[in-house]
Design a protein around this nucleic acid. Sequence first.
DNA 1: GAAAAGCATTGTCTTAGGACAACATTCAAC
DNA 2: GTTGAATGTTGTCCTAAGACAATGCTTTTC
Lengths: 189, 189
Amino acid sequence: MFTELEGFIKSVDEVDKKTLDEITNRFQPLRTVRNEMLCNIGQVCNHFYFISKGCLRLYEIDDKGNEITGYFALEKSIISANTSFMLQKPSRDCLVSLEPSELLAIKRKDFYELVDTIPVFAKMYHQFIEFAFIHSQMRIYSFLGMEGIDKLKWVMEHEPKLLSRISSKAVASYLGMTNSTLSKLRAKL
Amino acid sequence: MFTELEGFIKSVDEVDKKTLDEITNRFQPLRTVRNEMLCNIGQVCNHFYFISKGCLRLYEIDDKGNEITGYFALEKSIISANTSFMLQKPSRDCLVSLEPSELLAIKRKDFYELVDTIPVFAKMYHQFIEFAFIHSQMRIYSFLGMEGIDKLKWVMEHEPKLLSRISSKAVASYLGMTNSTLSKLRAKL
DNA sequence: GAAAAGCATTGTCTTAGGACAACATTCAAC
DNA sequence: GTTGAATGTTGTCCTAAGACAATGCTTTTC
């Protein structure tokens, strides 16, 4: 499990073995089953997760009880209930595993200590958040105003893994449509 | 103009006069008229802007020629054509002033030098990007799946300044609807 | 301060997509 | 493997919102 994390860090920048150990030492392995909740609505999220294997989903539940997916994270990436983690406020999001997953968890305090003391880790976080922001903006541009069929084509082009791996229901909640609409659109292609 | 920037930096963290000067020295004042273009589509954005007075808008033009607003920035905040600035790729966004504005511009190279050498500046950037990300996520959650009337109520509650200050047309492009729809929804309230 | 350009409002018509429901299918758990 | 629950498909019906157009209202510019 730690091999993947080491590879992930190395992909950010060159790093010596000692520094790498300092980083990985702070992470605790964690195995989840399907649909295991890592952060529930109302909790303050105190961990960041690196995904060695598996897949996590971050979603919110709106006034009408509909789920809206904010983010999917696949293996070799990091995720938390970001807003709650950053602001240390009760989360409006749920963070759950979609599959049995192998994770490495780091506590918030340790996380920010590494950010403050280890440049490669700071750079990694910096890249993560820039990417997360850019990705969100891209979704806003792509999904506001776009018609359903174009949203579907957009995911097929930009995030094809989601379609092969993740349930239609969850994908629909990511695209901002109902599962029946998604199903009809798929039939049209 | 520089007074506002100094206040902005001080609001991030305590900072001595010398450091403050090192920061502000890198900024060049810049006055714009209405609708002045600071970064056009296809250009690589090489500046970050602090807004002393006025208001900027970041938007994209989709396949059908419709404008989609990604972001509004009012005085006492910073903005650039973020994606292009971060990735150093040709921008898909246009950055324009909505009003005659007083700006302070900093070159990309200087900007990142300050990020790397002055902790308070790094913290400021860090806060900016965390906020920008959180704001984007909030918009995704709020606007995907929400009905028009609820989006309007949402802006009235969360960003009332936009409605009093910015043209309906631009607000509509921010909410992902046409201006005629927005006008009809307003009449309904 | 007149002319022009850009905005905002309101109307009609049309359509994409939501709600709900019935049924089929897959998947997981025993 | 069997059973039950969750997911996916397809249908009908209906409504929110887009397209387009006509008109009135502001701003800007000369």
